[in-house]
Each structure stands twice: as C-alpha cells, then as structure tokens.
Design a protein around this nucleic acid. Structure first.
Length: 692
DNA sequence: AGACCGAGG
C-alpha cells in the first residue's frame, strides 16, 4: 500500500492506457446543485468603457439599491445574504454613505483577512474617485490608512475586536458591517456579542444608535437572524456560474490514489487549456503528490499534452505561491495541488475542474487534556460547496468529488465554528477586558462547551490574570496588562515577567519570533544543505536560544536578502518579526515595563521561560521517553526541534501538537527546580491529583 | 527515531 504522504510505488501508479476511468464508469453524474446563473446567460458583462459609475450600475445588486436603502435606513440590524459576485461588499457601504445613513460616525466593514480589507478599501476608494485613506480607508495590524475624513473604514475583524477593548461601545462607529459572517472566525463570533451589547447599551444610554449589518453567503441564515432578535433577512442575487458535480460511485479507500487517477483522466480527455485545482490536506502530502504527478507526466502517451504541476500551501514562500497565478506555457495544462488555502484565501483564475478529496487537516481542541489535535478529517458540506464553487469563477465548471453521494450526505452541514475548536484563554481575557459583566454567561451565537470555558479560566487564573472574588471573576492588574498585548496570554505573561530576570529585550525578540509561522525555510529537497548551514546557529539550550541567535545574525547583516537565501531563512517572516517586536516594545513602554538586555547570559532567559511556561513542561522518563510534568501525558520532541536528537532531563515547550504522536514544539532546556519554585502550589496540587 | 490545515492581533 502506498504510504500516506509517500510516493506511490510504480505498481500503484495509474495505468493510463487502460485507466480506471473515474468519471466514465466509477463517477456518478449528479444534479446541478450550485445556484443558477444570473439573468443574462451568466456571462460576466464586460465593464462598459464609460467608467466606474456604469460599472457599479451593472452589478446585480444595483437593481435592489432603492429597496435596500429604504430597509437599511429603518432597521437597526439586518442580515444580508448574497453569493459571491453580488457586489454587496463594495456597494453596501457606498449606498449607506450616499444615502446619508450613519454619516454622524464611521461605517466599519470587517473582513476575516487582511488582503481582503486592503483590496476592498482600494477598490471602493477608486470607485468614489478619492484618495485611499481619505473618505475610504483601512486598518489592519501595522497599517492604518485612515484619517479624520474617513467615513468608510475596512478593517480585519481582529482589529475591530482590539479597538473594542479600548472602547467597548465603539463610539466612533455609526454602522458596523460584519462581512463574511459565514466563515465564523473566532473574532467575528466574539464581535457578534460585542456589537449586540454595544447596540443595546448605546440605546439605553441615549447615545448615537449603532446599526449592525451581518453579511453572509447562503448559510446559517436562521441562526444569524435568531441571534439578532429576529433581524430581517434580505436576499441578494449573485453571479455564480453553473457547476456540474460528479460523485464517486464507490467509496474510495485511498483518496490520494483516487485523486491521481482523476487528475490524469481529466488530463487525457479534455483540452489542455482548462486548469485543474485539487484539494489535499497538507504540505507533505502535497509535495509527494507533486513529485508523483511530475513523474507520471514525463511518461505520458504520445499526443497527450504536457503538464505543469504546482504545489500551493501557506508556508510556501510568496514567490512560489505567486506562480499559481501565472498561466501555464501554451499547450501545457496547469494542475494546482492545494491545501484549503485555495478554498477562500486565494482565488485562481482559469480553473475549470476541481478535484475534491473531501478531506481537510484541521484543529480540534480537547479541554480535558488541553490538547490541540491536528487531524485529517472529512470536510463539511459547506466546505465541499465552497470548494466546488472554485470551478465556477469565470465560466461553468466541473467538480469531481472523490466520495459517494451517500458519504456526502453524512458530512456535517457546517464546519464547526472556530470558537468551539480552540483554546479560549485569549477570548476570555478579552471579554474580561471588555468589561463584560459575566463572562460565564456571555451571549455567544455558538456556545463553547462549559469545559472549554472552565479550562480557559483556570489557565488565566494560573497565569495570575484573573481572581475569584465573591463568586465573581475579576481581571487583575496583571491581567489588564496582559490584555494589552496582541499575544496568547502565556506569552504576554512571559514578557511581563521578563524584567525580574533582566532579559526583557531578549524575551521580546523570542516572543516575536514565536508569533510568526516560521522564520526557517525547510525545502524538503535540500535537507542536508539546510542542516549544514543551520549548525552555526544551533544552541544546545534549545529552540528559543537558537532562534534568538538567528535573529541576532539577521540584524547584524541588516536583513540582507542574499544572507537569508544562503541560510534558508524566510526573510518575509523575519521582517514581520521586526515589526511585531517594535509593536510589543511600544506596548511595554506604554505600560512602563523596564527594558533591559541580559546580553550573553542565556540562563536568565531560560529561567524567565520556565517561570512563565511552567504548565508546559515535560521530563525525561527512565525509559527514555518524555511525559508532561503536570498530567504525565506521554509526549515526544518534534523532529523540527534542535533538541530532537538530544535527551535533556527537563524542558518547557510552547505548544503540544497531536498528529501521529503528541509532539512538543519549540523547546527550551530548563532546570526542574525552577519549575517548582515558579509554581509550588500548582505542582503540589497536580501531585495530589496524580496520587488519587 | 522522524514532521508542520488556515486566518488574525
């Protein structure tokens, strides 16, 4: 059997001459289920040369402008449903502004992603023929292109949430539009409750009313409406092209094999100008599949078009990600093998075929153990539709589902909202900072489990961020400072502890380094090379000090690009680390936290990490394995760690990642005594619990 | 003895 993620042995490769004909015999044609095309044959009308105004008028939403304005003027909350291409995101804010709605304040439009906020602001400000940052602007982390004149402001949902911590009633806004609500990001979910509370409070206090508009694709409608006290739902027509769906006739035991056969079946039977997008689950799997496809493509029968195969996942350097937007050379077929990054975040033109394995790698959170499990699992129906929709961006498309229609019917209807899959420590801290009266009964649209809420509160109590007083949870002075940082609470705590160990400058660097994806670039094909050049940075004290060494070297050569390339350092992420570090340092200065460097003394840095991450520690067992200090959960050192081949007696780690095994990631060698000094009561309690 | 879905501040 081919191993998951491994290359398929020759015997398992599809025989192309007598291929297994996935959509000839083993695929079943299904009904058209995507929304029908808009009137006008579903073809996108080319924008008339006469300019922006007529282009705006040609959008489907324009027909409804008068009605919409009338409704939105009188309603203080509304749910707006519209498919991709309806023009709702660019037009609604302008209609409101042009209709004089909410002119006393700013109209905020939230987006789950930064690129969306920026590109939408750019487009709308173009349409208004104004300079970006004047009437129309945007705010994302590290970039604030707004001014006193700004009346329409696009921002990430996380950014609005952060603003709310400083001003829970959102005084400067007259309208808040929560866009892409169906994505149910953790930030949007918290904002639902925040804007609902702000709206009520402002009404009670007789302040400027706050209008709330929730915009979503066609999902979850009833839930949204119900949550906002029966807010009216307004429907908008979209402009999606028809997509034919094909299901596998038989359940597929090996979705990689099935994907491979399907790719080459399509390739052999259809014009090579039509590109294929394949949804897979992870980097390793995609790299292996890329290699296999390229190998097979080399030995295609005569008359078969050549193929360019491109991997696509978030940790790929930008330059390689951009390649997927380039057209393949003439006569070549483009095949993109992607994670779910292509589901929503990246839109590629020219995709005619989507191959959907029906699998996704996603995080699950178990509050009892505090473990985040990263597991390959079935997608939801909503995700499957989203994937299929990627084939119909410009013209009609086809989607091959590598699962049967019966299997599909058993998929969950919706993806479980992020807020029910995460550690809630940050969210709970933010709710407290927002002065929510009782966070235990906070009005979530989808309530997280009581266990998850309790686990988060316990973690915050352990960090000294909250206290129980007369059955009430209150934020401590330390907790209020922690909420000021855009970090996980445990990392805010590390920074706040660092002055005691005279190493705040180094801790700022380390925490910043841990805030980005990874500053290390590890192309699988050049592993030996990577290991050789990395040797000079490696510290036997662990990953934190190693990263610190790399950052210092990067600063010494002032971020030279050539140096990054030679040392397999991700320069983009390194620049981001610098930005984050500057931001965290500013916050420290505002909070009057003394900044000091420990210079060459790394012992202090490790002590500081031990004192703040004492709940994330593991000790070497007599049999050579590791177990966590608190619950004796068996764990292992992640192969990416510089300590992978070492056996230190005691380590702290930043996180546990449960995949095939339970891995500790980003480790630091510490002294067990430090831990007991840091939290004697905690370890006594855990020890008692273990004995019982 | 051997590996990292995707956003966000």
């Amino acid at each position: 059997m081919p191993q998951r993620g491994g290359e398929l042995p020759p015997s398992k490769r599809p025989k192309l001459a007598s291929a297994a004909a996935p959509f000839g015999s083993s695929f079943r044609r299904a009904m058209l289920v995507m929304p029908p095309p808009a009137p006008g044959g579903g073809k996108r009308q080319p924008p008339p040369a006469s300019g922006v105004e007529s282009q705006r008028r040609s959008l489907p939403i324009f027909q409804a402008r008068g009605t919409l304005l009338g409704q939105l003027r009188s309603l203080d909350r509304a749910i707006l449903i519209g498919e991709t291409g309806s023009g709702k995101t660019t037009q609604i804010p302008q209609y409101l502004y042009e209709g004089g709605i909410g002119r006393q304040g700013v109209i905020a439009v939230t987006q789950p992603r930064r690129v969306a906020a920026i590109s939408l602001a750019t487009r709308v400000s173009d349409e208004k023929k104004t300079e970006l940052g004047k009437l129309v602007g945007y705010t994302v982390r590290f970039e604030d292109l707004t001014s006193d004149e700004t009346k329409i402001k696009f921002l990430t949902d996380g950014m609005l949430l952060r603003e709310a911590i400083g001003d829970p009633l959102l005084h400067k806004y007259s309208v808040v539009v929560l866009d892409e609500a169906h994505e149910r990001t953790i930030h949007t979910d918290v904002l639902f409750g925040v804007v609902k509370a702000a709206q009520k409070k402002r009404k009670d206090l007789g302040k400027l009313p706050l209008k709330v508009i929730v915009m979503s694709a066609t999902m979850d409608v009833d839930q949204f409406s119900q949550y906002f006290n029966g807010a009216p739902v307004l429907y908008l027509e979209g402009r999606q092209h028809p997509i034919q769906i094909f299901y596998a006739k038989q359940p597929q035991s090996d979705y990689l094999q099935a994907a491979l056969v399907t790719i080459f079946q399509i390739h052999q039977e259809t014009p090579s100008s039509q590109d294929i997008l394949v949804f897979l689950t992870g980097q390793e799997e995609i790299e292996a599949m890329t290699k296999t496809c390229r190998d097979i493509a080399k030995h295609l029968p005569d008359g078969c078009a050549p193929m360019v195969v491109m991997p696509l996942y978030a940790s790929l350097p930008y330059s390689q990600q951009f390649r997927v937007f380039q057209a393949a050379p003439k006569g070549y077929r483009k095949v993109i093998l992607s994670t779910n990054i292509a589901e929503t975040s990246i839109t590629i033109a020219g995709i005619k075929y989507v191959v959907d394995t029906g699998m996704v790698k996603a995080k699950k959170y178990t509050p009892e153990s505090g473990l985040e499990v990263l597991a390959v699992q079935r997608v939801s129906k909503a995700q499957a539709w989203q994937r299929a929709g990627r084939a119909g961006r410009e013209d009609s498309g086809l989607c091959y589902r590598l699962y049967t229609e019966d299997e599909f019917e058993k998929f969950d209807k919706m993806t479980v909202p992020e807020i029910q899959r995460c550690n809630l420590a940050s969210v709970m801290l933010h709710l407290l900072a927002l002065r929510i009266p009782n966070i235990l009964t906070f009005d979530f649209m989808s309530k997280p489990s009581p266990e998850a809420i309790q686990a988060a509160i316990e973690q915050l109590a352990l960090l000294g961020a909250v206290e129980r007083k007369d059955d009430q949870l209150i934020l401590t002075a330390l907790g209020r400072k922690m909420a000021a940082f855009p970090l996980e609470p445990k990392f805010s705590k590390t920074i706040l502890l660092s002055p005691r160990f005279h190493c705040s400058e180094e801790i700022l660097t380390i925490v910043s380094l841990l805030s980005v994806d990874s500053v290390l670039y590890n192309p699988p094909s050049r592993r030996d090379e990577v290991q050789t050049v990395r040797k000079k940075f490696i510290s036997s004290e662990g990953d934190h000090i190693t990263l610190l060494n790399i950052y210092r070297a990067f600063k010494n050569i002032s971020g030279n690009r050539e140096w990054c390339k030679e040392n397999f350092v991700n320069g983009r992420n390194m620049m981001l680390v610098s930005d984050i570090r500057a931001q965290l340092r500013d916050i420290c200065l505002k909070l009057s936290i003394p900044l000091e460097s420990s210079r060459s003394d790394t012992g202090n840095i490790r002590r500081c990490l031990a004192y703040s991450l004492f709940m994330n520690t593991a000790e070497l067992q007599p049999d050579g394995t590791y177990a966590t200090t608190d619950t004796h959960q068996p764990v292992a050192i992640h192969p990416s760690s510089v300590l992978f081949h070492c056996k230190p007696a005691c380590v702290t780690y930043n996180e546990l990642l449960h995949t095939n095994k339970c891995y500790m990631r980003d480790l630091c060698v510490v002294d067990a005594d430090w831990l007991y000094d840091a939290a004697p009561e905690y370890f006594r309690r855990k020890l008692r619990a273990a004995k019982n």
